[in-house]
Simulated assay, not measured.
Amino acid sequence: MTAPIGNFDEARPAADVLELLAPPVAAALAAWQGEVPAEQLIHVDSDPDKADTAVWAETYGVTMEQSANCVVVAGKRGQDVTLAACVVLATTRADVNGLVRRHLGARKASFAPMDTAVGESGMEYGGITPIGLPPGWPLLIDAAVADSPYVVIGSGRRRGKLLVPGKALAGLPGAVVLEGLGVAV
């Protein structure tokens, strides 16, 4: 199979290589019922030492506009903390203190600490992906991501990435597509 974007030695449907994915990602793909067929979600192997977005994109011939980052945010109101995930293009940053905070109804919003993001998601830092997040987490997707033919996202591990149609992400359980979630850096 040829990857729809980038330059990879091998590309396979992610559902065929569940053992290479973080357990919650594998479970979500095994139970996939999205409008986009599971065969269109592609796994590509990659060097975990090159997992950071800019280095990865350059190494594998993917533009930053084809790369999406998933960040875990903690919204706080009093003692209540809501964890949420935001997916934005790599050319932008999530509007955590504006749009995200307001959407979550929080007084304060910030990036979740690494140990919280990793522990609660069951995924590796640098590989957190919107597929397989805990049920009930708000999942905020920038409209530019949802409109992309394909974007690169994490696989739940630092090794390997997923190439996914934007509309597949917009169709994830609990996903809300927001215009302006990603702001220029």
Rank of each mutant, 00 (worst) to 15 (best):
A3S: 15
N7C: 05
D9F: 00
E10N: 04
A11Q: 11
A11I: 10
R12K: 15
L20E: 15
L21G: 01
L21W: 06
P24K: 11
V25S: 08
A30Y: 10
A31N: 14
G34E: 09
E35F: 00
E39Y: 01
Q40R: 15
L41V: 15
I42E: 09
V44G: 02
V44L: 10
D45Q: 13
S46L: 11
D47W: 10
K50I: 07
A51L: 02
E58T: 09
T63Q: 09
Q66S: 13
Q66N: 14
N69K: 15
N69E: 12
C70T: 15
V71G: 14
A74M: 13
Q79N: 10
D80M: 09
A85I: 01
C86H: 04
C86E: 09
C86R: 07
V87I: 14
V88C: 08
L89Q: 05
T92Q: 13
R93P: 00
A94P: 05
D95T: 08
V96R: 10
N97P: 06
N97M: 12
N97V: 05
G98F: 11
G98L: 09
L99A: 07
V100G: 07
R102W: 12
R102P: 00
L104P: 00
G105L: 03
G105V: 02
R107A: 10
K108V: 04
A109C: 07
F111S: 01
A112C: 08
P113S: 09
M114N: 02
D115V: 02
T116H: 03
A117G: 04
G122R: 02
M123W: 05
M123G: 01
Y125Q: 04
G127M: 08
I131M: 10
L133M: 14
P134T: 06
G136N: 06
W137L: 08
P138G: 11
L139H: 03
D142M: 04
D142P: 00
A143Y: 04
D147R: 15
V152T: 14
V152A: 14
G154M: 06
G156L: 12
G156M: 11
R157P: 04
R159K: 15
R159T: 13
L162H: 05
P165M: 07
P165I: 03
K167T: 12
K167V: 13
A170I: 08
P173L: 09
A175K: 06
A175E: 05
V176Y: 01
V176A: 14
E179K: 14
G180E: 08
G180M: 09
G182L: 11
V183L: 13
V183Q: 14
